[in-house]
Computed example of a mutant assay.
Amino acid sequence: MAQVHPSSVVEPGATLGEGVRIGPFCTVGADVVLGDGCELISHVAVAGRTTIGPRAKIFPFASVGHQPQDLKYHGEPSVLTIGADCTIREGVTMNPGTEGGGLATTVGDRCTFLAGSHVAHDCKVGNQVIFSNNVMLAGHCSVGDFAILGGGAAVHQFCRIGAHAFIGGLSGVENDVIPYGIAIGNRAHLAGLNIVGLKRRGFSREVIHDIRRAYRLLFADEGTLQERVEDVAGEFATHPVVHEILDFIREGGNRSICTPRDAHEG
């Protein structure tokens, strides 16, 4: 059912779905599951308790499922789960979870990871996320659906990147980025809303106008952020998109919320 090049090694116990194609000089571990139609082009190493969904395409020299880069890891039975229709380009590295993070790293469907990007242990990556070249996602991070991370961006451990957010290239992100936000710089600051992304994904002019107004209110100078969140919640009581941003802020995490740069800063 699967096509395996004679130079590749597939350990006994590996599960290969219908139509899997494994090119030359690949290695597939005993606990790996490759879904129907997966393709490993060449020189791909898939190890550990890794499950890859249907129709994933993995390019040369990707390392998927090997031991986490965490000195606290001591061989616990953690997993890496990757969804359907993902593209994993050259030199990408993805690690399974650790005991300190729930023993699981997960990646959603239809994600694209360009050359040299990295998904560390215990991360949660949503659906249709794009990592440009050399993006570095540290451990315990979460990335929402449709987020885009520009080339060379680095995300601090335990950070949250909201759905539909955009991270500029070479940004150093050390705080949580709200859904629909744009973060740029080192260290990154909030630089507005991802209007281009919203338009491309079919958000109406009225919804975009409401998000803009909510954004201005949330990051005004008056009051505390908590007070402004409650004010915006009252004004947009029945607006699901605005409440997605508010819920993200209320949920909180290990990092602070990324905010706009002070007007008095250079």
Score class of each variant (00 low, 15 high):
residue 179 P to V: 04
residue 240 P to V: 03
residue 191 A to C: 14
residue 6 P to Q: 09
residue 91 G to P: 13
residue 121 H to I: 01
residue 192 G to D: 05
residue 105 T to D: 01
residue 83 G to Y: 06
residue 93 T to P: 02
residue 234 G to N: 15
residue 228 R to E: 11
residue 197 G to P: 03
residue 232 V to G: 10
residue 10 V to Y: 09
residue 246 L to M: 12
residue 88 I to M: 06
residue 127 N to W: 07
residue 14 A to L: 11
residue 35 G to N: 07
residue 139 G to T: 01
residue 249 I to C: 04
residue 108 G to F: 03
residue 117 S to H: 07
residue 8 S to R: 05
residue 34 L to S: 07
residue 101 G to L: 05
residue 29 G to V: 12
residue 180 Y to I: 07
residue 259 T to G: 00
residue 207 V to D: 06
residue 127 N to Q: 08
residue 171 S to N: 08
residue 47 A to V: 02
residue 29 G to H: 12
residue 67 Q to C: 12
residue 10 V to S: 02
residue 245 I to G: 05
residue 52 I to T: 06
residue 161 I to Q: 10
residue 216 R to N: 12
residue 122 D to S: 05
residue 234 G to I: 06
residue 243 H to L: 09
residue 139 G to N: 06
residue 128 Q to W: 14
residue 186 N to F: 12
residue 255 R to K: 01
residue 94 M to F: 06
residue 190 L to Y: 14
residue 25 F to D: 11
residue 3 Q to F: 15
residue 206 E to V: 11
residue 122 D to M: 02
residue 205 R to P: 13
residue 190 L to P: 10
residue 184 I to M: 14
residue 50 T to Q: 12
residue 222 E to F: 01
residue 188 A to C: 02
residue 83 G to D: 01
residue 133 N to T: 09
residue 123 C to H: 04
residue 172 G to S: 09
residue 231 D to C: 05
residue 159 C to W: 11
residue 170 L to Y: 10
residue 71 L to W: 04
residue 187 R to I: 15
residue 77 P to C: 07
residue 226 Q to K: 13
residue 73 Y to H: 10
residue 60 P to Y: 13
residue 215 Y to S: 09
residue 14 A to P: 08
residue 260 P to T: 08
residue 239 H to G: 07
residue 61 F to P: 02
residue 119 V to Q: 13
residue 182 I to F: 06
residue 103 L to D: 06
residue 10 V to D: 11
residue 180 Y to E: 06
residue 113 F to L: 10
residue 93 T to G: 08
residue 150 G to P: 10
residue 172 G to E: 08
residue 251 E to C: 08
residue 239 H to W: 11
residue 5 H to Y: 00
residue 126 G to S: 14
residue 57 K to E: 15
residue 62 A to M: 03
residue 110 R to T: 14
residue 78 S to M: 00
residue 170 L to W: 08
residue 121 H to P: 02
residue 111 C to I: 13
residue 69 Q to K: 07
residue 242 V to N: 13
residue 256 S to Y: 09
residue 127 N to C: 08
residue 203 F to K: 08
residue 141 C to M: 11
residue 170 L to F: 15
residue 86 C to L: 04
residue 254 N to H: 13
residue 17 G to K: 03
residue 188 A to V: 01
residue 72 K to P: 02
residue 36 D to M: 08
residue 87 T to Q: 15
residue 106 T to M: 01
residue 225 L to R: 08
residue 203 F to Q: 06
residue 9 V to S: 02
residue 220 A to L: 08
residue 237 A to M: 09
residue 263 A to G: 04
residue 264 H to I: 01
residue 101 G to Y: 09
residue 14 A to S: 07
residue 217 L to C: 06
residue 233 A to F: 03
residue 175 N to Y: 12
residue 226 Q to Y: 00
residue 182 I to Q: 10
residue 68 P to K: 01
residue 263 A to N: 03
residue 90 E to N: 12
residue 102 G to C: 07
residue 33 V to R: 15
